[in-house]
Every structure is written in structure tokens, then in C-alpha cells.
Computed example of a mutant assay.
Amino acid sequence: MEFIEDKVFEGIKFQEEPLAKAEYENCVFKHCDFSGANLFEFKFSDCEFIGSNFSLANISKTAFRDIKFKECKLLGLHFEHCNEFGLEFTFENCQLDHSIFYKTKIKKTNFKDSQLKEVDFTECDLTESVFENCDLNNANFDRTILEKVDLRSAYNYSIDPENNRIKKAKFSIQGISGLLNKYDIKIEN
């Protein structure tokens, strides 16, 4: 497999100009369009994606090691099919609606100012992750490990404490209703 490092890719539509199957290290992808692209078995290490669109890309067996996604559109991605070895990323100002993290181990992941509507975190290990100012409307938490997770500034979440591990997780008083939704009670100031 080809090895490409320290390169900047800008404004490329990879449906028209396919990205070479390679191992990319310390590369920057600015305003690139990966939507619907086949990234099967690609390897990305220490890369940054800025303002790029990954919607509905095939990321099966794709390696994402120490990756920064900033202002990216990542709609409907199946992160559960990624290469698990070294899987690590951060998300800032990203749209991750309808993406799936089923059974992924993504401890200490930072989600900042991101939209995670209807994201599936079933059986995901999110230990010590941070959801800073994130919209978790209809996100699915089922048998999810949320120990030491920081949800103090997250909103629109619904988490069943009896069905998820939430030991030492941090919540704000405003978000406490998201832990009580299943009881169909009204909380007022």
C-alpha cells in the first residue's frame, strides 16, 4: 500500500477524482467531498479533515487513528465497521446525524458543538468522553458505557440510567429530565 504524508488536499471531489488507496499520515483535507466514496481499508493517521463531506461514504475497515474532524458533514456513517485498532477521533462543529457507533470502543472522544441527531450508541464504550454543547436529539443509548462522560452542556438527550452504565457521569441540572424521560413525568422550575 502506498504511503502519503504531510500533504494538503483541497476542494477535491473524490467521486470524480478517486483518492488513491493508501496510508495517509499527517495530511490535511480541506473542503473535500468524500460523499458516497469507497474508503474501504484506507488508513488515516494524525490527519485533519476540515469542512469536508463524508455523508454515506463506505468506511468499512477504514483506519481512523488520531483524527480531527472539524466542520464536517458525516451523515449516516457506519463507524462500527471501521478498523478498531487505534480508532480515535475528535469532532468539532460536525453533523453526525444518523451515524452508527454500535459496539465501538471510543473512550475519551471529544464531541464539541456538534449535531448527533438519531445517532446509535448502542453498546458503545464512551468512557470519559465529552459532549460539549451537542444536540443528542433521539440519539440511542442502549447498554452504553457512559462512565465519567461529561454531558453537562449537551442537550435533547434521553438516557435510561437503568439500561446504561453512568457511574460518575456529569450532567447539568437542566439536563436531568433527559434521565427521567421513561417515567413520563413533568419537571418544572
Rank of each mutant, 00 (worst) to 15 (best):
D33P: 02
F69K: 02
K30G: 01
K30L: 12
N140F: 06
L116H: 03
F64K: 05
L56R: 01
G36P: 10
P18R: 00
F9H: 10
F101N: 02
F89I: 05
N26T: 11
L74P: 00
S129H: 08
S45F: 11
G36N: 04
E48H: 09
Q15V: 12
D135G: 01
I59E: 08
K70M: 11
F131H: 07
E16W: 00
F29Y: 07
A63F: 05
F101A: 03
A57D: 11
E71N: 13
D97R: 11
K103V: 01
F101Y: 08
K68V: 13
G36D: 11
A63S: 15
E25I: 01
K30M: 08
D6C: 06
I100G: 01
L56E: 15
I50G: 00
S99W: 03
S99V: 07
K68H: 12
D66L: 09
F42G: 04
F89N: 04
I67H: 07
A63N: 07
F141M: 02
E41D: 13
F49G: 01
K13I: 13
E92H: 09
D66N: 14
L19T: 06
F42M: 11
F69I: 05
F42E: 07
A20V: 14
F79H: 09
N53F: 04
I59Q: 04
F69T: 03
F40M: 08
R143Q: 15
K13W: 04
F44W: 06
E71L: 10
N140E: 13
E132K: 14
S114R: 03
K21Q: 15
A37M: 13
P18G: 08
V28Y: 12
F141G: 06
T90I: 13
F141A: 06
E147M: 15
D120N: 15
L77H: 10
E132S: 11
S55M: 07
F131D: 05
F121V: 04
S55E: 15
G36L: 00
C134P: 01
T144L: 07
K7Y: 09
N133M: 00
L19A: 07
S35K: 00
A63H: 05
D135N: 15
A37Q: 12
I67D: 04
A20C: 11
N58A: 05
F9I: 02
Y24S: 10
L87K: 03
Y24T: 09
I100R: 02
E128L: 12
I100P: 04
C32W: 06
E132Y: 11
I100M: 08
N138F: 10
N53I: 09
H98V: 12
K108Y: 12
L146P: 08
F69V: 08
E16T: 10
A37V: 13
D142R: 10
I145E: 14
H81A: 15
F89L: 09
K103W: 01
E10A: 09
K73C: 09
N38C: 12
K108E: 15
N26S: 14
L146C: 04
A57G: 08
S60V: 09
I145F: 12
E92Y: 03
L116P: 01
A22G: 04
